[in-house]
Amino acid sequence: MTLVQISLATGFALIFLGLYGALSNRNILRMIVSFTIASTGVNLVLVAVGYLPGREAPILDTIPVASAAERITDPVPQALVLTAIVIGLGVTALMLAYAYRLFRARGSLDISDFTELKW
């Protein structure tokens, strides 16, 4: 296996583990932890797709500009993932704030205690 395949496999495995944890846990905090693991996996998959074997980081301090297109990896997925990580923290903070509000309302973090939206 090459580095790209290893990273892709790790990313997919992290997505599985995260989603399985989010579906099977009853504790809201544990679900949020699982979501952060899944989002790390998605980021890993995206960066691995942009990686071209044997190439260097897209920073032109030692690479001459003329040969940049032959020597650097794809910068676009990296920019997207940078954005995704920052937004991921915002989403996590929002989920945690709502989890705290739910705990204040019901005194419990178990998802099966919240039945208002069930039908």
Binding site: V4, L52, L60, V65, I72, P75, V76
Partner: peptide
């Protein structure tokens, strides 16, 4: 994995320095 950069990425690789003057393409 691709063998070479796609169109968008190679545009950024070639044009970033003349157009923006930044070393870090990201």
């Amino acid at each position: 994995p691709d063998a070479s950069l796609n169109l968008t990425a190679s545009y950024y690789a070639d044009q970033t320095v003349p157009e923006t003057g930044a070393q870090n393409i990201v």
